[in-house]
Amino acid sequence: MTFQITLQPAARQFDVARDEPILAAAIRQGIGLPYGCRDGACGSCKSRLLEGRVIHGAHQLKALTPAEESEGFILTCCATPQTDCVVEARSVPGAGEHPVLKMPTRLLSLERPAPDVAVLKLQLPANQQLQYRAGQYIEFILRDGARRSYSMANAPELLGSPPAIELHIRHMPGGVFTDHVFGAMQPREILRMEGPFGSFFLREDSDKPIVLLASGTGFAPIKAIVQHMQARGITRPAVLYWGARRRADLYQHAWCEEAAAAMPQLRYVPVLSEATPDDAWSGRTGFVHQAVMADLPDLSGHEVYACGAPVMVDAAQRDFVARCGLPAEAFFADAFTSEADKHGPG
């Protein structure tokens, strides 16, 4: 038995098998529904059910509250339809999505620009062409079948020769994968990955000014978007806010300064939340999303692209919409949800 899902306003339709989550069926059929963790933890796939009935699998209350569920919201990553359904999904980008591929990659280089950050460059196989949008991510497939997600930090126009993707990985002590990256990973090691995934990329049919908002290694997909804008000659005004705890955490600060110097339409605003005298910091301090609000109290004509810790992304979305007039549909986000986050309380 299958059910039919109709997405509005795109008027796209696809089938979902019995007991299959809506999102899994959409990905299988090349439909670009928004999503993040695919585990019911981040809320990135939250959509409104206009018609029909679904049953939700396990999910965290912070991703979908009972009040939101009563108002008709669903998490497509863990909602299985019980009838044909109509779902509102205003950010569905439509046709032209790139195919999802599984492929091996070889470690070309590993640098440590900060004590807890590794920058990996991974060579792509010559016989498979990975196509993606700047801002999307891949998933490593570990030996036990578990997956870990990381955003490409270079635009597809800048894969280089041999073609390689750049990833920024923060060390999560006790994490199976990041402990390996920061400990036992060997030169030329082979890793298995799948991608691209995600609906976090620049909407190029708009001419609105852009706010690029990052915290920590959430800078990676933002860097790819900046590179893409430069490569494609996109001249929309943009400002990059990068929030970190200490000066050392701005691990590619010089790159941001150089990009802003090379792109007249781009400004760069670094913000430290825990600056100390040792940082010798004369720049902005505090929470990065509050720096945006101080500079741009009226966001009604902007688009915001945010990536980083879920607490930052959630606060930015809430405050920008409620206090700065940002249209809810003009906030695009990719929250980093660690394994600890996924299995934490509600």
Rank of each mutant, 00 (worst) to 15 (best):
A306Y: 09
A294K: 13
G216P: 01
T65A: 08
V92Y: 07
Q29E: 13
E97I: 15
Y137I: 09
P310V: 08
E111M: 07
H171M: 05
L108C: 03
G286S: 10
E139R: 15
A118Y: 07
S109K: 11
S206A: 09
A10N: 10
R148N: 11
F332Q: 06
C77H: 01
G344T: 00
D334M: 02
W255D: 12
F219W: 07
M293A: 12
D116E: 12
I190Q: 14
R48G: 05
I5M: 02
L202N: 05
M293F: 00
L240Y: 01
A275Y: 00
Y241V: 11
A89C: 14
G283H: 08
P156H: 00
Y268D: 11
S282Q: 14
F287N: 13
S300E: 06
P345V: 04
Y251I: 07
R267E: 14
R90D: 02
E274V: 05
A126L: 04
T235E: 13
P237G: 08
E20F: 07
M312H: 05
H59Q: 06
R143F: 06
Y305F: 10
H289D: 06
C77P: 03
R148T: 09
A155H: 09
R247E: 11
G216D: 00
L33P: 03
G218A: 07
G174K: 09
L326S: 09
H168W: 06
A224S: 15
D279G: 08
Q4S: 13
L299H: 06
V86N: 04
